[in-house]
């Protein structure tokens, strides 16, 4: 049986500079595992479900830490900024509250103290068949154990499945998408600035990864444009327990209202598909309208259109509808 007591051996590298990290990643390629706060990584190693030969602990790279304002009026958040720092940061709280709220809802204080924004956005799937180390599609195998008549798929996806039905479990991801964040990934060969659509990928495109970060690349920072600063925001996470637990569904909304009507909005649900699910139909349905109970209700109904529930996750449909309704109704500046 699978041994779950101690971690298998690996070579540990602890570079202090980005360029050294790139040199190590270039050398070991797919054999290397990047680790920031380690909250996701160490669980994989202890379960022996992932056995990298080399672990590159990037947590000592100072240039990847902190929040700074950019010349174009937005902010740039270093990938190693911890979730606690993020949730307390005065600029983030003042301008982009939805992100601070989302960060403060992740797991437990201990995990937020060490868990990084980069690691949270890049974290792997939580499908428990996959986490258990079974040879499913996501692990490079030929099947999905969750999408079967007997499969336990309460936590799984409503949308955009393709052979694999896992969801992206991150709480910060929907908030980042709502803020139209750009993801800066860098390797020795150069830098790519990715939109959320390019950064988060579903199983149709790549069944073994949730993001498009390449083995030799590191997510260095996340840029938030000024466009949504000070908008009306809403974040809510529905989980089974109030202490640390992953979202069954979460919602993040940024809504700009002018002259009493919605000028533009970005509304995003997490844990309903393998990428944070932006809801353009909902955004269209509220555009140009004054926010109120009726509009919010329609928005909720619109949100779940096209959902294809599995055996045990049908409850996610009303849950998602209600969360979107509340987001539209209760978003505040």
């Amino acid at each position: 049986m699978i041994v779950k007591d101690v971690m298998p051996n690996f070579d540990l590298f602890q570079p202090k500079q980005l360029k050294d990290a790139f040199a190590i990643l270039d050398k070991f390629g797919k054999d290397a595992w990047k680790m920031a706060g380690g909250n996701d990584s160490l669980a994989w190693f202890k379960d022996r479900a992932k056995r990298p030969k080399v672990v590159v602990d990037i947590s000592g790279i100072a240039e990847l830490k902190g929040v700074k304002e950019t010349s174009d009026g937005g902010i740039e958040i270093g990938a190693l900024t911890t979730l606690t720092e993020l949730s307390k940061n005065p600029i983030v709280r003042a301008k982009y509250r939805v992100l601070a709220d989302a960060a403060s809802k992740v797991a437990s204080p201990q995990i937020r103290n060490t868990g990084t924004l980069g690691g949270n956005a890049a974290q792997d799937a939580r499908c428990w068949y996959y986490r258990y180390g079974l040879p499913c599609y996501r692990a490079g195998g030929n099947t999905c154990f969750a999408d079967t008549p007997e499969g336990v798929n309460r936590e799984h996806a409503l949308f955009d499945t393709d052979r694999c039905v896992t969801v992206n479990p991150s709480d910060t991801a929907p908030a980042l998408v709502a803020l139209d964040a750009k993801f800066v990934v860098r390797g020795s060969k150069g830098e790519r600035v990715l939109s959320a659509e390019q950064f988060f990928i579903g199983p149709k495109i790549d069944i073994t990864h949730l993001t498009s970060i390449k083995p030799e690349e590191i997510l260095v920072s996340i840029r938030i444009p000024k466009d949504w600063a000070g908008a009306r925001f809403y974040f809510e996470k529905a989980a089974e327990r109030n202490s640390w637990d992953f979202a069954m569904v979460n919602v993040a909304a940024a809504i700009v209202v002018s002259n009493g009507v919605v000028e533009r909005s970005r509304i995003v649900c997490g844990a309903v598909s393998a990428t944070p699910k932006r809801l353009p139909a909902v955004e269209d349905s509220i555009k140009g309208k004054a926010l109120g109970d009726d509009i919010a209700k329609v928005a909720g109904q619109t949100a779940t259109r096209g959902a294809r529930p599995l055996n045990y996750n049908k409850y996610k449909i009303p849950l998602m509808a209600n969360l979107v309704t509340r987001a539209v109704r209760d978003a505040t500046a």
Binding site: M1, I2, P135, A139, G140, G141, N142
Partner: peptide, 16 residues
Amino acid sequence: FRYAMSVYGQDQLLGA
């Protein structure tokens, strides 16, 4: 070949 560890902890053939 490509192998994975099966539910029973044994090598399981996956493909080429």
